[in-house]
Amino acid sequence: MQGAFAEHVRALEGAGARTRLVRTREDLEGLDGIVLPGGESTTMTMLMERVGLLEPLRDAIRGGLATLATCAGMIVLAKDVTDGMAEQQGLGLLDIGVRRNGYGRQVDSFEAPLHIDGLNGKTFPGVFIRAPLVERTGDVEVIASHDGRPVAIRHHRILALGFHPELSGDLRLHREFVRLAASRN
């Protein structure tokens, strides 16, 4: 819809997947996995609502469609959003509470090395851009934290990240997601 989709396409293809941009309901047909990219969550939610994509997408993810959500994508998935627009109503599928731009404005955007559970080898380069702050987690698995706050969350077939692996040049998380998507059934 809007955001850093081209970067995800490059990363996913680097991880061996075939990709398609999803802008309409029909584009959802036959997918093994979907990426909700970084961008502006207000813009993305509004567009999805306007073209009737929000409901079918919610059904698909609820039905087990593997989902990688980064930054704004995580906001769109979250059950509770603070500092959004009054009526910002996303997918509400992931039991976490996030504060939009919770780390501050652009001048506070940062890079930091992350230890991610289940990821072998060195730390993962976390790129945080006007990132959402996870303030509450419910029935989900936190697989990485920074400064005591969750930044990577797993729940069934959902992988939600507060940072941008597609900008990091490190394909490990995209490979992980491709494996997750391929493991359907």
Binding site: A4, F5, E7, G39, C71, Q106, S109, V127, R130
Partner: peptide
């Protein structure tokens, strides 16, 4: 520079 250029990448398509 990565986070500076990165914000613009988030604005794409907008």
């Amino acid at each position: 520079f990565k986070v500076k250029a990165g914000l613009a990448q988030m604005l794409k398509g907008g």
